[in-house]
Each structure stands twice: as structure tokens, then as C-alpha cells.
Amino acid sequence: MSKNKKKFFQILLVFAFLGFLGILINNLIINLARTGLGFNFNWLTKPASFSLAEHPLPYSPSDSYAWALFIGWMNSLKVIISSLVLATCIGTLIGFLRVGKNSFFSIITAGYITVIRQTPLLIQLMCWYFVGFLNMRNNSFLSISNIFNISNKGIELFGLNLSPEFSALLFGLSIFSSAFIAEVIRGGIQSVPLGQWEAFRSLGISEKQGFFKIIIPQALPAFIPGLTSQYLNLAKNSTLAIAIGYSDIYAINDTIINQTGRAVECFIILLCSFLILNLLITKVMGIIDKSIMKSGI
């Protein structure tokens, strides 16, 4: 194809895209006009007049929609960050055991990864919530003096009380993501050439020392891309909170849409918030990646 022809088709493509976008926006404007709402964010300052079961900061129904959304964000971030930490810990441990020499642990962890990866997250969450937490005995299902207590009231840890909804979501997200993270860890470790294992063994260095001083530092760069995509997935998956009644940002947006009919504004807020959060996660992982690259290899 000649250069001019190429340019012509590209310009045509741009116009087709702009036309499509125009139709969408036109539709939106017509529909907004029909409902008589118009496009604005003034409603954010009005009182929300619904109550929230869980709020890390003070909240009452007379507070504004904006404040309710902010509380929703706090709830989302709370569960995303704690699941991210827990999933990484469990996933790393499972990944290590999966590649380890002990065949018992290797088989057990392979089974764990298979079962968790092959079933839908929504079902796992429901299972943790209804079968796991709500079915537990009243006061203490598992209790270690006053430090740790699991019951149908959720988890109590050092006097910190976690609701059954939060606990189920934390467990569900962490365990689901941990299976994927374990595979990322396994892949990273196995990407280190076998010769590196032989080299440290031939020097009389123990398996444990060699693993942490020779193998892991070389596997780290291979962990980062996989971990990043798992963290992004985890953040997005947290919106399934609505299924078990945890008031995350999506659940609160859903309530607001029902009350006000402001679907367009609410979805813009939602999409932008997750876009910003995930860009932030990507950025942080990029910084970690760079610092690993700098420290050798």
C-alpha cells in the first residue's frame, strides 16, 4: 500500500471512531434530558440518609453523599491493602513449598492451587461468608486466650474487631489471589537456571542459605510483572464485596444510584477511582522493579 493510501485509511479510522463516540454522547445527553436530571455533581453535598454497618471514620445518615463515598473508599482500601499483604504472605509460602524438596508439601500445595484456581471467586466468597463465618458457633469457634478469636461475629485480634463480612472478604480475596501468586512465585524460581543450584551446592552452601542468597535474588525480577497483574486483579475483584454485604465503594455507589438515579456520575466516579488506584499500584510496582534491577544483575 502506498504511503498516501495508508494515511487516508488512518484518517478514515479516526473519523469513524469520533463518529461512534459522538453517537454515544448524544444518546447520553438525550437520556439525561428525558429523566430531567441533567449532568452535575451538586447532589454530592446532600445528606445520604442511609446508614452504614462499617465505617472506619465517624459517619451518620445525615452526612453527605460525598462523605459516604469517602467512607466506601476507606472500606475498599482497608480490604484491598490487607488482602494484598495476606495474599502475598500465603502465596509466597505456598509457592516456596510447591517447589521445595518435600514431596508431601509439594502435593498438598499443588492440590490447593488447583482447587482455588479452578473455582469462581464469587462462589468462594459466598462460601467463606455463609458456610465459614455465619455458620460458626456463637462465641468462639477458635480462640487463643484473649488475643485471637474467630466466631460468627468475625475475627477478633488484639482487641481489634473485624466484622464477619470483612473477614469473609479478606479470607476469600487473600486465598483466591494467593493461589495465583503461588504460581507466579513458582514460575520465578523455576526461571533461575539449574546451574545456579548446582553451583551453590558444589560450594557446600546449604539448601536454605542457597535458596535465599542465590536463587531468590535472581528470581525477584521475574516475580514483579506477575505480582503486579495479580495485585491489579485483587483490587478489581474487591468489588465483589457487594455480594456478601460489605460496604465497599461499589456497594455504596450502588445504593446511591438506587436513591438518586445518578448512574452516569456514579460510574464515572467508580471508574476513575479504580483507574487511579490501579495506576498507583502499577507505579509502585514499577519503582520496586527498578530498585531490584539497580541492585545487581
Binding site: 546451574g195 553451583a199 551453590f200 558444589s202 560450594l203 557446600g204 546449604s206 535472581q218 544483575i297
Partner: peptide
């Protein structure tokens, strides 16, 4: 392990620790 501490080995692919 006791043998490995007293016997050195050199490989075809060098196997130096790149980091």
C-alpha cells in the same frame, strides 16, 4: 555436604552468581 566443603567444582557454563 562434608565432601562438598573439601572438593571444588568448575562447570562448563561457569555458573557464576550474576547478582
Amino acid at each position: 555436604q562434608r565432601i562438598r566443603r573439601r572438593v571444588g567444582m568448575v562447570f562448563q557454563q561457569f555458573n557464576l552468581f550474576p547478582h
